[in-house]
């Protein structure tokens, strides 16, 4: 038989562990369903206007002081393949061949989600969603686990693997430090010669997007991409073709990514609270009436 002292010790040990770790579970609930800051800014991207001049890429490169690209920004040969964001390019424009020999260009960069997966998956809290709407990154605490890259539904964060001593996540930060903080639109928006992008309060942009669709239903598909996707994003898109055809997942969930793990995180404090009593109870039942023979400690003790 286990003596009572051992039983109590077991319980104490477990509850200490429980108490110290249940913090994790509790704070997870605080992440609740967050629909974005009321005054958050955003950008409405009307893909029907984009001509693929890549001046936004150049502006971004200049504003963020990124290294020189392999090919100059007026080189159209980059459209031969589908590119993605890299540590050297926070935004890229891709060309898509859509129905009846039409082409459509799509600019991609961080969409600045209302409830970002990168932020909620980060175990050192390196990301912040600012009240202006930007998702920014603190390179001082990043450990380099790259969970954000796994979690981002748009495959945006890139990692500067080539640096042996200070590799970091590289992604668009909405020009937060240099522009957004002071109420100015990001560099790519400002430079666009086609007025593809409109900078404004996210709530206004949603209205504007729907109005454009309503006033010209033949031109646009009836969807404002980013209004609801993964809990809503600050950057939203209008398109003349189905979003699936231009590399955006049309079946993306409307709940933020964190909601996929909420059930699991909610269970954590329960396991921590219930398991100690449950298994100590099972122990008492399993070893009942086994007497001296069943008790490990006594048997081992005798041999010393």
């Amino acid at each position: 038989m286990i003596d009572r002292r051992d039983f109590l010790k077991g319980c104490v040990a477990c509850s200490v562990t429980a108490a110290s770790i249940s913090v994790a579970g509790k704070n997870a609930f605080a992440a609740g369903s967050f629909e974005g800051y009321p005054d958050a800014m955003g950008v409405l991207v009307d893909l029907t206007r984009c001509v693929g001049c890549r001046s936004c890429e150049a502006a971004c490169n200049n504003e963020q002081k990124l290294p020189e690209p392999d090919l100059p920004f007026d080189d159209q040969s980059v459209f031969m393949e589908q590119r993605r964001t890299t540590p050297k390019a926070y935004t890229v424009v891709n060309k898509y061949e859509v129905a009846d020999k039409n082409t459509l260009f799509r600019k991609m960069q961080c969409n600045h989600c209302n409830e970002p997966a990168c932020l909620t998956s980060c175990f050192v809290n390196a990301y912040t969603k600012t009240k202006e709407g930007a998702v920014i990154y603190n390179s001082k605490v990043c450990v380099g686990c790259r969970n954000c890259m796994i979690a981002c539904p748009f495959n945006i964060p890139a990692y500067s693997y080539s640096s042996p001593t200070n590799p970091l996540v590289k992604k668009c930060i909405f020009c937060y430090d240099t522009r957004l903080k002071n109420g100015r639109p990001p560099a790519c928006v400002e430079i666009c010669p086609q007025q593809v992008m409109t900078f404004g309060h996210r709530s206004d942009l949603i209205e504007m997007g729907h109005e454009r669709i309503k006033s010209n239903p033949a031109k646009y598909v009836n969807k404002l991409y980013g209004e609801k996707e993964v809990g809503g994003t600050s950057w939203m898109y209008l398109s003349s073709v189905d979003f699936d055809k231009i590399g955006l997942d049309n079946h993306m969930q409307n709940e933020p990514i964190i909601s996929n793990v909420k059930d699991f995180l909610g269970m954590v404090p329960m396991v921590l609270s219930i398991w100690p009593a449950l298994f100590t109870g099972i122990h008492l039942l399993a070893t009942k009436n086994k007497g001296e023979h069943g008790d490990h400690d006594h048997k081992e003790g005798d041999q010393q």
Partner: peptide
């Protein structure tokens, strides 16, 4: 920086945490 999630900066809503 492996000890960071323990001592420097907590991201308690994360599964990895």
């Amino acid at each position: 920086r492996l000890p960071y999630p323990m001592v420097v900066s907590w991201g308690p809503a994360s599964v990895l945490f």
